[in-house]
Design a protein around this nucleic acid. Sequence first.
RNA 1: GUGUCUAUAGCUUAGUGGCAAAGCUCCGCUCUGUGGAAGCGGCUACGAGGGUUCGAUUCCCUCUAGACACCCCA
Length: 439
Amino acid sequence: MPQKPNHEKPKDEAPKSFRAPRGMHDLLPAEQPYWERIEAAMRSAARFYNFQRIEPSLLEFADLFRRTVGAGTDLVEKEMYSLKTKGGDVLALRPEFTAGIARAYLEHNLSRMGQPQKLWHFGPVFRHDRPQLGRFREFTQTGFDVIGGVNDAVYDAQVLLIAMGILEDLKIKDVSLKINSIGCRVCRPIYKKQLQTYYRSRAKQLCAECVERLETNPLRLLDCKDPECRELKKKAPNFLDKLCVTCSKHFREVLECLDELGISYALDNTLVRGLDYYNKTVFEVFAEGAGSDVGAILAGGRYDYLMEFIGGHLTPAVGASFGAERLIAVMKAREIPVPAKSVRRVFVAHAGDSAKKKALKLIKELTNAGIPVSESLAKDSLRAQLKSADKENASTALILGQKEIYEASVIIRDMRTGLQESVKMERIVEEIKKRARLN
RNA sequence: GUGUCUAUAGCUUAGUGGCAAAGCUCCGCUCUGUGGAAGCGGCUACGAGGGUUCGAUUCCCUCUAGACACCCCA
C-alpha cells in the first residue's frame, strides 16, 4: 500500500530562527544600486588612471597584521577575527587591505611587473568592534595604492586626487581633507622625545590614559579629547616644525601638488593615524554637515617601511581606502539619488497549458538572442500575467496561446500604448530588436 | 570593551495585565485571451528564555539584536 507523502514539519524539531551575527549585514537587492554606483565609480577611475585590481586573500597569517599594523594597536590587539587551523596556524580575517596587498606584492614579485604598481581594491574586511552608525564588524573598503618606483610626492597627491574625484563622481560635496606628516624613522624619534620632554614636566595635568600613552605612544597624546590635555596640546611642539629636511621637502611637495590641483585641505598636526606602518604623509577625509557623524570616509597615507616589516626591501608606497558603507550612509543622509539600473525586459505570457511549454521555449530563444526576458508562467490567468508585466515595467509583452501556436505566430504588445500585432514566430527576435532600436 | 535608549506583520505605526489593530506591500478572487482602476478576501507579528500572576505582548530579570555616545576606527 503506497504511503501518503508527509509534508508536515517533524514535531520534535524546534523551530530555530537564525539572524545574521552581530555587526554582519546582508546586502539586500534594495541596496544594490548604491553598491553598483560605488563600484562603477571605482572602476571608471581605475581605468582612467591605469590602476589594476588586486584582491588579496581574505585570510592571512595573524602575524602579518601584528608585524605591519602593529602589536600595540586596538585593531590587532582587540579587533581581529582570528582562528586556529587544524594544522595549528593562526590565521585572521583581514582587518584592512594594506598588509595583504603588500604581502601579495612581495610574494608574487609584482615589482617585476613594472614600477610603480598602481593597484585598486574592493572587498570586505572584518573588525570585532561594537557596531554603531557607520561602523560594522563586516564592512567594505575600497581604495587605491601606488607601490614601488620612486618615492615621489606626486603619488601622494595622485592618490588623493583620485579619491576626491570619486567623491565628486558620487556627488558627495562638502567634504574636508585633513592632512599631516608624521615624519620618518630619523625625525620621528627625535620629535617623540621632544614631545615626551614637554609632557613629562606637565604630567600632573594629563588624564590617566595619557600618562600611560606618554611612554607607549606619545604621538597619540595629540588627539586626546580630554579638555586639560587639549589645553596642553596648544603649546606642545608641532611636528611640522620638527620634520627632517627630507620629510619636510616631501610634505611641502605634496601640498604644492594639492594647491596645483585645486584640492583644498586643512593641516592637522593631531592627525597621527592608529596604524604603525604609516610614515610621512597621512590624511583623512570627512563629510561636513549631513553625514558627518559616520566618521572618516577615507583614510590613508604613505607606508614606505611596510615592505621591510615583512621581509622585503624598503619600498615607497602610498594608498588610501574608502569605507563603502560610510559613503553610502553619507549618500543616504544627503538623499543623493542613485539611479536604479532598470533593464526594460520583454515579458513572455501564455494563455493555456500547452502554450506554457512553448512559452518556455520562446524564452530560451529570446535569451539566446541576447534579449532580457521575464515571465510569470506559473500564473494561468493572462490578466494576472500582464499585471506582473506592468509591475515590472516591461517594455513589451509577447502573448502565446492556442491560436498563435497553430499559426506559428506570437502576439507582440507594446505595454505603453497597448497596441499589439501578430508576428510570425521566426521574425520575433528581429521585430523585438527593431522596436528596441526605435525606443 | 563601557554607557544610554529601544525591540508588535515584509515596511510604517497603534494598542492592552484578559480574543492584538490599521495603512502600505505581497498573494488571491471578482476577472483562465489582455495590465494600470475598484471592490472583496488571504498570508504574516508581540526578539529569546526565565520570573511575578488565575492569566504577561504589557510588570521584573537575564540573554540576544539594533540605534546612539565613548574607546577606537573605514
